[in-house]
């Protein structure tokens, strides 16, 4: 049985290698010049950074689904049976506490800046959200976990907010006679900022909840 499985696996891998080899040897058909297309349409996208224009406007559907994937990941983790919290956590030292109080405002500011900068240069909601989540985790590690109490009661509304706003914008563009997520160029900049702002919040909340793992929000003493 084991030999049979090995042979089947070998056959499968050989087939995959053959397909890959065949794909590589095929002549590349000259496709459309995508960078030029994006550069040409940048004026109607509402932002001046091509990466943000693709992520939030031209291929906004993909970004919406990325947010949904993050939400599903959170749902999956929260469905698992709660683990015992890590034991033997040492009392928080003064250095960490002081460093956190210095760094937290800076981290929040830089996260918001990354969101704002996404319109014109590298940045955006995912990077800003990750940084905001890092601020939340730093606050947790430094013992400043009173915000958890608020998070515990509003975890799902906050985590779903990004997707909800994105879907609302999508429905709005559809109802306004356009295509799904075809942002009108006059308001595209504002709409992208609104979508990214709520996405930033949801991403940060989701990542902090993922860090906490299963059930710890409920288990934690108030």
């Amino acid at each position: 049985m084991k030999a049979f499985a090995s042979a089947a696996l070998a056959l499968l891998l050989a087939g995959l290698a053959a397909v890959l080899a065949w794909t590589v040897t095929r002549p590349v058909t000259p496709g459309r010049d995508v960078p030029a297309l994006i550069a040409g349409a940048l004026d109607v996208s509402g932002v001046s950074h091509p990466v943000t224009a693709v992520l939030l406007n031209f291929r906004g559907y993909d970004t919406l689904l990325e947010l949904v994937v993050l939400l599903i990941a959170l749902a999956g983790v929260r469905c698992l049976a709660p683990l015992p919290p890590p034991r033997g956590s040492a009392p928080v030292g003064g250095v960490l506490r002081e460093l956190a109080s210095l760094l937290l405002p800076v981290l929040v500011l830089v996260a918001v800046y990354l969101l704002w900068a996404g319109a014109t240069r590298p940045g955006g909601a995912f990077q800003g959200g990750a940084l905001l989540a890092a601020a939340g985790i730093l606050a947790l590690l430094a013992g400043r976990d009173r915000f958890l109490w608020r998070l515990e009661h509003r975890l799902w509304p906050l985590a779903c907010l990004g997707v909800a706003v994105f879907l609302a914008v999508a429905a709005g563009t559809l109802a306004a006679g356009g295509v799904l997520l075809g942002l009108p160029s006059a308001h595209a900049g504002t709409l992208i900022l609104v979508i990214e702002g709520f996405a930033l919040l949801s991403i940060a909340v989701t990542l902090v909840a993922l860090f906490l793992g299963t059930g710890e929000l409920e288990d934690r003493d108030p």
């Binding site: 590298p122 995912f126 890092a134």
Partner: peptide, 13 residues
């Protein structure tokens, strides 16, 4: 853009 995402999400989180 990818570098920023990698540093924040890949390495950090």
């Amino acid at each position: 853009d990818v570098a920023l995402a990698e540093a924040a999400i890949g390495a950090g989180l």
